[in-house]
Design a protein around this nucleic acid. Sequence first.
DNA 1: GTCGCTGCAAAGTCTTTGCAGAGAG
DNA 2: CTCTCTGCAAAGACTTTGCAGCGAC
Lengths: 162, 162
Amino acid sequence: MVLSTVNINDKTVAYEQLIHDFKSLLKKNNLKFTIQREVILGTLYSSNEHLTPESLHHLIKEKYPDLKTGIATVYRTLSLLEESAMVTSLSFGAQGKKYELGAKHHHDHLICTECGEITEFVDEQIEERQHKIADSLGFLMSDHSMQIYGICKKCQNKSINN
Amino acid sequence: MVLSTVNINDKTVAYEQLIHDFKSLLKKNNLKFTIQREVILGTLYSSNEHLTPESLHHLIKEKYPDLKTGIATVYRTLSLLEESAMVTSLSFGAQGKKYELGAKHHHDHLICTECGEITEFVDEQIEERQHKIADSLGFLMSDHSMQIYGICKKCQNKSINN
DNA sequence: GTCGCTGCAAAGTCTTTGCAGAGAG
DNA sequence: CTCTCTGCAAAGACTTTGCAGCGAC
């Protein structure tokens, strides 16, 4: 079992749940639970970052150098996970698509246009308004995403000091 | 003058303004006002769609068959316009980047996951909350984008009838 | 005239696909 | 055992870039 080390603080229980859900999903679709799929989900889980396919691949190579994981498998698994709504993707600017685990609570994003850092937030008022807007336009809402672009505190300070 | 036909209803005045702004921008940066750039801006202006570089290129070829416009120039001009905030881009799902004129009023998007149609809306309450959120997190907000995904009325009816 | 712009085609990126062998169930 | 997965490399899709001639100013 490759992922026995993924006991990060109190996240362990949630992780078990996640794997369980993943296995159900796979079984339902006659797909197999492979080490690669486990490692990809686990790495997404243990990372607090929003990862590109490439950075995810890189992380996996670092953590599990013996397991030769191809970038193609990362793409394939991310598509699979996204299709089943276990992860969500975010794409902005020139930079590519970034993925994050969707099983966490829902949230929106603040994106720093200087350093690319992504901060998460949730606002109940906005969530509520979104539903109302979709309803009023006869739209059957399934999901939404919101990004606020600007300059984070860190980068603001940086430019003051220069 | 290639674009003498771009007198769409009452939009004429705004278009003149747009071209004026574009010319200023170009002059400021020692860039030239070429027919291609004019046509690209004009086509974006006269289209109510959100266009991909490719569909924009296609539209231009249709409208101005004599003007050989290369896709490379479309990309170059869109980058230029985006950099100067005259157009904004939107990317979602597997589909590529879509561009729209940013000079119009600000708005957010409802995106149909069935047919890809994009509907625009504005909601003052949400706009206001966004500013408050950015402020409270020490973030210097410059822009934002919000997308609501779901199924539009048309596609809902379609699936009922099948 | 000068210097930036354009179309073309070639080169990059990023992502997907075909295939033969490996591995889960 | 069967049938799906995987890594690899090749193919695709989308964008960018280099270059020589063209055109705005």
